[in-house]
Simulated assay, not measured.
Amino acid sequence: MPTQLKQITVIGAGVIGLTTAIKLQEKGEYQVTIVAEIWPTDHPSPHYTSHWAGGHHCTAAESDDIRQQKMDTETFRVFWEMSEPGHPAEKCFVRTPQHEHYFEDLGHPRGLETMPDFNLMPKSALIPGAVFGISFTAISFDPPRYLDYLHKRFLKAGGKLVHGSVQHIKQVIEGGSSVFEGKSPVPPDAVIVCAGLGARSLGGVEDKTVTSVRGQTVVLHAPWVGFGSTRRKIDDEMISYVIPRHNGNIVLGGTLNVDDWYPLPRPETKIAIMEKALALWPEIAPPEVRKERTPTIEDLYPIVVEDGLGLRPHREAGIRLEVEWVEAHGARAPVVFHYGHGAYGFESSWGSASMAVDLMEDALKAN
């Protein structure tokens, strides 16, 4: 007789929820259902922050944060494989030269020296004001396209998605995803909470150390830009960058506004982002304009695709990866808490998903 699959419920369908659900579903031992209020296929919303990532893979791990380094390294390996020609996700990624300009000579995040084609930049190649710089080959990704790929991959593997607004984790412990479908309750064998910013208000979690880091960006169509570049300055709420995408768009960024919950792009911030980016990288302006005169931000408006705005789920102590057994009306299951990735959910997604899966499986084996 075939072994009955264990029922797993994942709360949240952002990049962390989708990646974790795929890791479980593709093992062949579980039937995974994601319960989420917003899906990748829904209309873009600032409340679904994964859609608005920059994004490229560049570790943010501190030199003594071995756990974060491990997550980021595994994720980069997976992204590199996905960006290989012929991979189903190939067109979600692009490999480009990346230049990181530092305004304080404090070194760079540990792990970047292992990036492909890593080099120290000569002083002559630095942008005005920078005192130190590095270059390497980076992987940039198109978040909406990549989320669509993850969504389809999960469903193809046999996973299920259910629209539902979870008020308390005990709703899921007792009834599983069925309670959001009007069906008889089916208590899951385990629950994984990938609620992002929702972890602040989700009953049974209510982690008040989770707050919004508001990220505003501007997307341009500039297929002539074949590089990525970042201006890094400590304690600066605006970190300027250019990130290219496979489809010819580039992302200009961006803000890091802690505990800022405003859900719409601010016009003055848009102007500041474009002015700063153009001053640092005039190459983002159309070539025909640059041939005739010095470009201004007025030359960028015709190529603006959209304004980006996401509320990133920052947690003071970093990513929460813990497991607890929770009971609800006679049902009992391990709950893995997997949230708090801040602005670096994509960069750590596959590595942190592996850790979350290990926590869940260890809890089930120990029961």
Rank of each mutant, 00 (worst) to 15 (best):
K6T: 07
T9V: 15
V10R: 03
G12V: 02
Q25G: 07
S45T: 14
S45E: 13
G55V: 06
A61R: 03
Q69N: 00
F79L: 03
R95G: 10
P97V: 14
H99V: 11
H99L: 13
H108L: 11
E113A: 13
F118N: 02
N119V: 07
N119K: 12
P122F: 07
A125N: 00
G129S: 08
V131L: 08
I134Y: 02
F141I: 13
D142L: 12
D148C: 13
H151S: 13
K156T: 06
G158A: 08
I169T: 01
S177D: 15
V186W: 12
V193K: 04
V193M: 07
G204T: 11
D207L: 04
A222H: 06
G228N: 03
S229C: 01
R232K: 12
I239V: 08
N249T: 07
G254Y: 01
G254T: 03
N257C: 10
W261P: 00
E275T: 11
E283C: 12
I284P: 15
P287F: 15
R293M: 15
P302H: 12
G308L: 11
L311D: 03
L321S: 04
V326A: 06
P334Q: 06
G342F: 07
G342Q: 12
Y344I: 09
Y344G: 07
E347K: 04
S352A: 09
A353M: 03
L359V: 09
M360Q: 12
